[in-house]
Design a binder for these strands. Structure first.
Lengths: 335, 335
DNA sequence: GTGAAAGCGCTAACAA
DNA sequence: TTGTTAGCGCTTTCAC
């Protein structure tokens, strides 16, 4: 490794501790020495060894972000929000991708005991509903904040959006537009947010005295290749739905693809509304009506809470669960 | 912090080093002790302290990925490719976002001297063409591999795609489709890959005996708000172009937006081809003809080379510069 | 205001 | 095969 604090100390005829304190801008060091040290350090382009410092201070200056996927407009935008806050706080962001795999998620959380990160921001993967690994992480006193995809039976601060309401309004829109038969593309049964979206959908139907049909609720997975035939089956039913609520971005765009293949015209034959943070929803053919989550803001809010935790601040009741509103953008796909 | 190797040693009546070696599966430790240690460790859910180990071993098990942006289909997909390799090697991936800011890029690279990461994968930001910070990183012996956006005057392994050829073919397609006047939306003058794309465009025009018009080459920036009026100006020229080559994803979709606003019909009034790794290019209105980079593969290739470097392996000549081919997908926007 | 020394948790000679 | 010991580079009492 390059240059150490020890070298600086000897070069300057000072003690190691003096240099260390000077670098930390300690009040016990004279302005003069501080200046001397700082100048020399700058001249040498010295950067302190993060491992040594982390080891001693028991703080790494890293936060972990655990997401199911990074090639997804919601998560990548949320990461930007997180990064914006981390940047200001001088923290590094380590991204962990679970690819919707519970086992991977478990081993990632397990790793966090290694002292590599000071805190964790997480959006749960959609696998089986196991929370023991999360509980275990909490037991090891590492601050954790959930965003978007929460584990509802774990008591940590969380940032989410009004999934129930948005889904209700999205479904209502389709009803208002005259759709007879509205389908819901469900991702995983085990995700709280998807459940909320499903419930909002169901409630909207119920409030409008429409019976929910079992075959209209399609249980999709995280694999598009498996979802494709499921959606195709839905749209080729004897009495196919006239509206679709896609509970994720991928499912929404996938239903476009299937409609194209089947020669179904959107919105004439079938109307679509999808949960998505895509910037280019308005450029789709036809432009897609979306429930758009405030992804950036959610990331920012979650990171802000995490830093409060890291600074040992009390989390107020109103910070325990922050709900940011999504927006329903009406576009041509529900025209 | 939780449980240490020392505790395990005393609990088991062993020496610290014995435990350490057992955990490292050293051949000098008996099967019996290994088993005893491993079992106990598992029982306690012990995870070694990464900082201590990094400090001692001078290896962190982290690699850095420096990208201009993460909410971009190319980069997020490339990250997935990188992550796939890192996963296998048991490495962690730390993402650094420059937001196209040279200063930020510099301070990030500077930080790498802290021993936080073992190696760096980087796609340069589009700011001024300064490479001193890169040179400095190299001087500190940290392995570096470029992907996609390389700094051409720095001698490190790089993974790129055939930008010149792809751009040539894209432009040629527009010519073949009968476009009189073809514009090129250039991002930054300082990016090697954009320069290549521009050169491919120019060569195609030249080979077809078409003069390149200065006003058809639009010098865009990394800020969409600034690009919007530039593109608008282009499309409202007295003799507007009939074809557009968008040198980045953002610029391509932005030109859609501007066309919509101006009531220009694609492809009737103007044809568009864009460099993009978007999965949903075919769902756009109209579906977008793209030059699609092998993003995942590029990430994978770059990571693979980096791990070779990390293992002290010689980099063969053919690995110094890997060129993976992009694909031209012809869709409705050039119909 | 500065310095000496202990030690964070782990690894790797070297001894035994 | 196992144990002893000396650090990795830094921070932090505690002396001076």
């Amino acid at each position: 490794m390059g240059i150490t604090i020890k070298k600086i100390a000897t070069d300057l005829g000072l003690a190691v501790s003096t240099v260390s304190k000077a670098l930390g801008d300690s009040h016990e060091i004279s302005q003069d020495t501080k200046k001397r040290v700082l100048e020399y350090v700058k001249k040498l382009d010295y950067v302190p060894n993060a491992n040594a410092s982390s080891l001693k201070k028991r703080k790494t200056g890293n936060i972990a972000v655990v997401v199911p996927e990074v090639a997804d407009s919601y998560f990548s935008t949320a990461i930007n929000g997180i990064e914006a806050v981390a940047q200001i706080k001088g923290y590094h962001v380590i991204i962990y991708i679970t690819h919707e795999d519970q086992l991977k998620e478990q081993s990632i959380l397990q790793q966090f005991k290694s002292g590599r990160v000071d805190g964790v921001l997480m959006s749960a993967s959609s696998g089986k509903k196991v929370t023991s690994h999360v509980q275990e992480l909490l037991a090891s006193k590492i601050p954790l904040v959930f965003f978007d995809r929460v584990c509802d039976d774990v008591k940590v601060p969380m940032v989410l959006t009004n999934d129930f309401d948005s889904s209700y309004r999205a479904t209502e829109l389709l009803i208002r537009k005259g759709c007879r038969g509205i389908a819901f593309l469900q991702m995983s049964e085990n995700l709280h947010i998807i459940q909320e979206r499903l419930n909002g959908y169901k409630k909207a139907l119920q409030d409008n005295r429409i019976k929910t049909k079992k075959e209209y609720i399609v249980r999709c997975t995280s694999q598009d290749t498996l979802n494709h035939p499921l959606i195709k089956k839905l749209l080729t039913l004897d009495n196919p739905p006239q509206g679709i609520v896609g509970s994720t971005e991928k499912l929404s765009t996938l239903s476009y693809t299937v409609c194209y293949e089947l020669g179904l015209r959107i919105p004439a034959d079938i109307k679509v509304v999808g949960f998505s943070s895509m910037g280019i929803a308005s450029l789709l053919n036809p432009s897609l009506t979306t429930v758009t989550q405030p992804a950036f803001e959610m990331g920012k809010a979650a990171a802000t809470i995490l830093f409060k935790l890291l600074n040992g601040k009390k989390i107020e009741v109103e910070d325990q669960k922050i709900v940011l509103a999504s927006t329903l953008y009406e576009r041509a796909s529900t025209g």
